[in-house]
């Protein structure tokens, strides 16, 4: 669910996280001018952006499916299922995919395309609590509910308890091939 406003002040101050973010900046310029966060496997965004200025040297590590700044997580607000027993596209055992979802538009630096990404929640267990991310590229308030992530997208499931979020490619952005 997408309440996330992350808390992890330890991770927030992780210089490693700062360094990583700085290093990946180049990848993200095409998407938007903002850094999409990541503090290693530890969560935390957007709170850690304030420490970016530290300007540590950048390690050469590509973001992976457990990093908040992996490209398809550009509008996630919640716990990555990749860290919770699932993957980017599968829910952890014992949970149920959400019947409804919000959608992000994320730029894949590997092929230069913008993809529509469906952020489905996995439901029926209390929150996973691992790899919390809060990226908000093109996220909007609830009057644009389909791109809103401050609401529980398990809302229509038999058990609406939120556990974690998957990021499933559902197509290319309009006008792209």
């Amino acid at each position: 669910m997408n309440f996330l406003k992350l808390f992890d002040s330890l991770a927030e101050r992780s210089t490693r996280g700062v360094a990583q973010r700085s290093g990946r900046r180049g990848f993200l310029v095409g998407v938007s001018k903002v850094l999409v966060a990541s503090a290693f496997v530890l969560p935390v965004l957007p709170f850690d952006r304030t420490v970016q200025a530290a300007g540590k040297p950048a390690p050469k590590k590509e973001p992976t499916d457990t990093d908040c700044d992996y490209w398809r997580y550009c509008s996630v607000d919640g716990f990555l299922c990749s860290c919770c027993g699932g993957t980017m596209t599968t829910c952890p055992p014992g949970t149920t995919p959400s019947a409804v979802s919000w959608v992000g538009t994320c730029h894949n630096p590997a092929d230069g395309r913008d993809y529509l990404v469906s952020y489905n929640d996995c439901c029926g267990r209390t929150t996973c609590g691992r790899c919390g991310c809060n990226t908000n590229i093109r996220e909007r308030a609830g009057y644009r509910l389909g791109v809103h992530n401050d609401i529980n997208w398990c809302m229509a499931n038999q058990s609406s308890l939120y556990h974690c979020t998957v990021s499933v490619i559902v197509g290319l952005e309009e006008g792209q091939s």
Partner: peptide
């Protein structure tokens, strides 16, 4: 308020 704002920073502290 925060500086260095851009698309996606609207929930920044």
């Amino acid at each position: 308020m925060h500086d260095k704002g851009a698309e996606g920073t609207h929930k920044n502290p």
